[in-house]
Amino acid sequence: MRDMDAFSCKSGTKNIVSDIKLNTNLERRLETLGLTAGTSFEILNKKRNGAIIIKVRGTRFAIGKDIAKGICIERSDNI
């Protein structure tokens, strides 16, 4: 299957991170928030411009389009 990213996932899905492809600074920030390869997170909401609300390790974060595109997903399931 083609590589997915969080930007292309739908609202209301549970996703597993396969890799993070962002600049080191952002990558580290996401890491310390617990969003690392193998982590699963839910997408709670998605806007037309691509900003998403995710829930990872019990906390909700709003994430802009550019960051969402850097979060690679290995599988995405409807909740």
């Binding site: 600049n23 900003a51 906390t59 994430i63 802009g64 550019d66 960051i67």
Partner: peptide, 10 residues
Amino acid sequence: SQNSLLIELP
């Protein structure tokens, strides 16, 4: 600067 919105929604 990237659109680097990254904020906790408490």
